[in-house]
């Protein structure tokens, strides 16, 4: 239990500390045994499974979400990254994580120079008030991340 509280505090704090904290957190994860992990996974662990040991730097990525989502079942969001989208310098992928959902990985989107613009819009389910994180993978192998807090009035994960 203490582990859990510890993690939650860190969760909040890494908002300030940024990417370095994310890397540190990835090692704190195993708590509550395998059964708990199967049910819901921390977003840090999910992110690690997706992007490996890369440490995304803050910046370049913007996450647009309503400040308050009345209905968590369908929350529109737009993610975009600064990039020339030329053949030598473009955004390869953008991964979106909902930090407070039982399954944080929401969507991974893959771009090419033919996309013209590293920006996409979709709609997500949000179970409760939380941060939404987007990590962009550039063609040169660098990672950047952006974050946005959204208040959810009615959660949208269950029935």
């Amino acid at each position: 239990m203490t582990d859990k509280i510890h993690l939650e505090i860190l969760n909040r704090r890494d908002f300030v500390l940024g990417a370095s904290a994310v890397a540190a957190l990835a090692t704190v994860v195993p708590l509550g045994g395998n059964r708990a992990l199967a049910k819901s996974v921390s977003w840090q662990e999910t992110m690690k499974a997706v992007i490996g040991d890369a440490k995304p730097a803050a910046g370049k990525v913007s996450v647009e979400l309503p400040e308050i989502a009345e209905n968590g079942r369908t929350v529109p969001f737009t993610v975009s990254a600064d990039s020339a989208m030329s053949s030598g310098d473009y955004v390869k992928a953008m991964h979106v994580f909902s930090t407070g959902n039982p399954r944080p990985h929401t969507i991974s989107m893959y771009f090419t120079p033919g996309s013209g613009k590293a920006s996409a819009t979709s709609r997500m389910r949000l179970g409760k008030t939380q941060d939404v994180v987007c990590v962009a993978e550039m063609s040169d192998g660098k990672f950047y991340m952006g974050k946005r807090t959204v208040k959810v009035t009615i959660g949208g994960c269950g029935g």
């Binding site: 079942r73 369908t74 929350v75 989208m85 909902s98 959902n101 399954r103 944080p104 990985h105 929401t106 969507i107 991974s108 989107m109 893959y110 120079p113 033919g114 996309s115 013209g116 613009k117 920006s119 996409a120 819009t121 979709s122 709609r123 997500m124 389910r125 949208g156």
Partner: peptide, 18 residues
């Protein structure tokens, strides 16, 4: 795009192309 259960029903996707 790889979609996960966190995407809403009737999935909407908007993006760009050159």
């Amino acid at each position: 795009a790889n979609l996960h259960p966190g995407i809403s029903a009737n999935p909407y996707l908007a993006f760009h192309a050159k």
